[in-house]
Design a protein around this nucleic acid. Structure first.
Lengths: 164, 164
DNA sequence: CGAGGCTATGTAATACTATAACATAGGAGG
DNA sequence: CCTCCTATGTTATAGTATTACATAGCCTCG
């Protein structure tokens, strides 16, 4: 029943399972499957693409199936939503177990390559700190931020240069 | 025929008209009306809300009417899209005339108050610079970035404190 | 003038993204 | 056993955005 994923994905899934267990959260087979599909993908995955894939093995899958699962994964910081793409990526950085077991959103930044569509997650503290400072100067206290940059990744830039 | 807007909005519209003229862009009555509706609103406005309002005076208005108009306004930097809200705000900062007349996207940051829904636009160079530097370290060159922070504006924080 | 091309808008249909509301199933614990 | 709670199933609908083709006005070039 369980889907087959890459070795790397399976490792990340095991980590996710450990995190969930520590928090008393239930990483069900459905949730594990969806997380695996997201982690296994080269680029961000849309909710309806996840749905299509789910349906190959799960007859009753419907939009709420996917969105509820995504809510769970988001809540536990196992995936992120990329607003620009209305799509989801796995969280591979800093998804450590919180002592308090509380849900927490990481202060992450995303670099989206407009050529290959891949997304790189950064967790640059300076970026968060400078944004927080600038906001504070405007009298604003930030609870969470979306930072998504579009551009060219090193691979694609090299390739472009090669092609003239 | 032309809608009535606040004095402030009319001023901004005149500036927008000047910018368009300088660029050889055509700020038609439709575009001016939509821009005015966005500028006049206290909070970001959704495309279908704009459509509803348009229909009050324009019989044939349909989704493409609004989206095409928004495309024009976005292209000329007269409005921004707030990804988190799927809504649009007027650009009031740094929307100066470029000598080259090219479309340009500002490096803007948005502060969204989760209580009152208002959005403040910042143009903090440090934020852009630090993000660009961090991206560069990851081998990434940014062409444009979305930075949206959610939190509490000073007004709402004060009000909350007053209420205990 | 009149043909052709260009920009802006009209019009109809549809695709894509997300949520609401209610139903069912199965385990944990009194 | 019954009840509560979590997870999922099921149906319907809301909200956001685009495609494709039609029309209308304007400009200009011959």
């Amino acid at each position: 029943m369980a889907a087959e994923f890459s070795r790397r994905t399976e490792t990340l899934l095991d980590q996710a399972a450990a995190i969930c267990e520590q928090r008393g959260a239930n990483l069900t087979e459905l949730r594990r499957t969806v997380l695996g599909m997201i982690l296994d993908a080269a680029a961000p995955t849309g909710a309806y693409e996840l749905l299509d894939r789910l349906r190959q093995t799960r007859r009753g899958a419907a939009p709420p199936t996917v969105y509820r699962t995504l809510d769970f994964l988001l809540e536990h910081g196992l995936v992120h939503r990329v607003e620009r793409l209305s799509a989801f990526v796995g969280c591979v950085a800093g998804c450590t177990v919180d002592p308090d077991g509380e849900s927490h959103t990481h202060a992450a930044q995303f670099l989206i390559c407009r050529t290959c569509g891949r997304v790189v997650e950064m967790q640059d503290h300076d970026v968060s700190a400078v944004l927080a400072r600038a906001a504070k100067e405007a009298g604003f206290s930030i609870s969470n931020a979306t930072i998504e940059a579009e551009g060219l990744c090193s691979t694609c830039r090299t390739a472009r240069r090669a092609n003239g």
